[in-house]
Design a protein around this nucleic acid. Structure first.
Lengths: 187, 187
DNA sequence: TATCGTTTTTGACAATTGTCAAAAATTACT
DNA sequence: AGTAATTTTTGACAATTGTCAAAAACGATA
């Protein structure tokens, strides 16, 4: 829980009261490797904070699994589209390593927003950071070559390369596993 | 101004008081075709609501202009990264058509947030919609073929094809202008 | 350590898309 | 309407990446 509190302090410093209320809403969840946090078709009712472990979001396209994001320590994770709209999820969320998570339901979060302006502010600021992050990833993915994408990954998020099977990384970068393997062997 | 008020009511219904305060902060701006709302290196200090007209965000890569988004009627536009971080913008924003915009500064918006929880909520909800939008675009851009991207555009946002030069659209889709031209002629 | 299952690499080939240059079409302006 | 400027199309070719299949490497487990 301390990880969570420390992490959100980076977004916006909360009052003690708000922090306490926040703590009351999050519940600890421990899930083993390879289990699913969410499967395609389910409605995602929770937002999670990942204290320890790794996971991936993926969906099926023409019989292939497309991993489009990873989550690691100190990431907030959820199936964003489903969590916000409360429509069935298109994606699956699967544990790549056993994980310790903290979970809050959408209802609880909404209640917190209503009672604490500062918590809604925290989330507004968090959204800004996440938006900037996806925007950057988007621009890279679209306009860089496979080799450049690999170099980026090496420099910016090398932990992904160390902790995740190559096949998942390939689809994350939008290239085939064979191409990624060949690129890697040139370095 | 009525356009703006009607549009934000789709995100979250504001009290009369908040609406009035909001109105006081937005200023009308009229800009002719081809002018720049922002150029690379400037700090983006304003958020705009586009009442009428069209514009594009683009940046330079290896001497080429990469258009990565378009704005049309009822879009909020800004150089998001620069507006949020107040660092110099990487991108340029240029008018594709003469436009009527409503402008609010970052300071004014921050003041509104401090005085009106409901306005911060409105923006939080707007961020959610914009996040979902970019996430969808990202997934499409990365995992679809050039032809599929064109078909998507035809079905979902045909106004882009009608109002924007082909070269801009090609870079928006992440393909060369020649390829886009050939795809289009097959239909 | 031997074995099974999974992940990664390699090779041959095909498909898609990009690049460059020139022609054609369209648009804007006087 | 006529001219210049811009935008779009076309052709030939090259480069990149994908696909399929098989081999090799690696890891977990008995």
């Amino acid at each position: 829980m301390q990880h969570l509190l420390t992490h959100i302090a980076n977004f916006y410093p909360l009052s003690t009261e708000a922090k306490n209320k926040l703590q009351d809403c999050f519940q600890k969840v421990i899930i083993p490797k390879n289990e699913f946090l969410l499967t395609q078709g389910q409605i995602c009712r929770h937002l999670y904070f990942l204290e320890k472990g790794a996971l991936r979001g993926f969906y099926n396209l023409d019989g292939k699994e497309i991993t489009h994001w990873f989550g690691f320590e100190n990431d907030f994770v959820t199936s964003f589209h489903s969590f916000i709209t409360q429509e069935p999820a298109i994606e699956n969320i699967q544990l790549l390593e056993g994980a310790v998570l903290w979970s809050i339901s959408k209802e609880e979060l909404t209640t917190l927003f209503n009672h604490h302006h500062e918590i809604e502010r925290l989330v507004r600021i968090a959204y800004e950071k996440y938006y900037i992050r996806i925007e950057e990833r988007f621009v890279n993915a679209q306009f860089k070559t496979a080799t450049e994408l690999y170099e980026n990954l090496l420099q910016q998020t090398p932990h992904i390369l160390e902790r995740v099977p190559l096949g998942h990384i390939a689809s994350y970068l939008g290239i085939s596993q064979e191409t990624l393997s060949r690129i890697r062997n040139k370095f």
